[in-house]
Design a binder for these strands. Structure first.
Lengths: 220, 220
DNA sequence: CCCTTAATGGGAGAATGGTTCCGTTAAGAT
DNA sequence: ATCTTAACGGAACCATTCTCCCATTAAGGG
């Protein structure tokens, strides 16, 4: 709850964007302010899941969050600002990595987590929207990158343990291997918009493992 | 020039979207109509390169293309419609695949083509925009998928020849291998927004090759 | 418990983006 | 060469989105 929005708008570059207070929500983050943020972010996620990023609209968010629209404009500034803060919020709620005892199992668990997330009607839509927003705005892109940095760091031990067990070469870069597992899934999700079947995830795991064993992901 | 826009808008689902003619530009694709399309698509690409997808605006496109804005609205309907048609247009201009004599060289050429495209200030921005648009609209997503289907089909022979030479197992799925080369690059481009260095492309090639040799991409 | 003021919220007004109308231009057919 | 009409384009029109002003509410400090 402390790394919330630093600057909501960046289309305008005026030194003092609003009337008084530097950035609303930081100086007096009392119960009401927090409640407003929660309601707005929930409404944002709902809207993204329902209608996607292109239809994201400040007024509607304000209405469905039961919040004054002035507040939404003041604190978040734009649809992209909403998504960016949603990303910060999502980065905070982390769920722990798997530990099946073997690298194959762990990577499979990771791939299936990604698959389940992206194929879930609600979450899939949210991620699509978030990726679209990141493509439109630099600040949002940073938030998205930070989100995945967090996620990947959580899973890195899976690879480190496997290296310790001798399943893969010693100097293997954990993040690099995890990215290799995710990449084919995200490629299909964002570029070719293909269905993410079980075969696809399995193949992603197999291929990444083969490359890792071959030393393709050695830290340089 | 024949597989141009089939239906420009799909936000509304009325059987006859416009006053008369089914879809403008198809019944009488004379010199003027073609010129207008060229001017509009060029202006669209410029706008995407300059300001990105979120700022894509029909009025401005019309103005900078030197075309009536009514025409732009009538033929393309929305910013997403513009991007979709631009994708159809891009799919038509194909550049041939490499043939260096070895699979490693060919895949490296492919990876570097992708990298050069995505790191090019103009083209990179266009692709970013196109990916964002595809995340917002189903029709646009289909156009993007078709674009990459075309591209990948052009490069498939590279893999087929390598299999014939015995560099990789016989039943290797060409498209699957090519996707494996591209995926890490696009993952960084769209998700983590990392810089695409030479090391990244090289690693993408090495990893994909190792997996291919290991039979990870065998057609099932 | 009261006071100060950060933060919210309603509503009016401005701006931007999108639509429609209808006259004009030129592609394709005879 | 002439005719028909698909397609274009200017301008007025309408809707939505955004911004600003100011009264109201409640967080945090005494």
């Amino acid at each position: 709850m402390d790394l919330m929005e630093q600057e909501t708008r960046l289309t305008e570059s005026q030194p003092v964007p609003h009337d008084h207070a530097a950035t609303p929500g930081t100086l007096r983050p009392g119960g009401r302010t927090a409640k407003v943020r929660r309601a707005v972010l929930d409404a944002t996620q709902d809207a993204l899941a329902d209608t996607g990023f292109h239809a994201l609209n400040m007024d509607r968010i304000a209405a469905s969050a039961g919040v004054g629209k002035t507040t939404v404009y003041r604190r978040w500034g734009s649809p992209v600002g909403l998504v960016t803060d949603l990303l910060h919020d999502m980065a905070e709620q982390s769920l722990p990595a798997a530990d099946t005892g073997g690298l194959t199992g762990d990577l499979r668990a990771n791939a299936e987590l990604v698959r389940d997330t992206l194929t879930d009607p609600r979450m899939g839509a949210v991620f699509r929207a978030v990726i679209a927003a990141a493509a439109c705005d630099e600040e949002c892109a940073r938030a998205l990158a930070a989100f995945y940095r967090t996620r990947l760091a959580e899973w890195a031990p899976v690879v480190t343990r496997a290296a310790a067990r001798g399943e893969i070469p010693g100097g293997t870069d954990p993040v690099e291997l995890l990215r290799a597992v995710s990449a084919p899934l995200y490629y299909r999700f964002t570029i070719t918009h293909e269905e993410l079947t079980g075969a696809v995830t399995e193949r992603a795991v197999t291929a990444a493992l083969a490359a890792a064993r071959d030393g393709a992901f050695l830290r340089e």
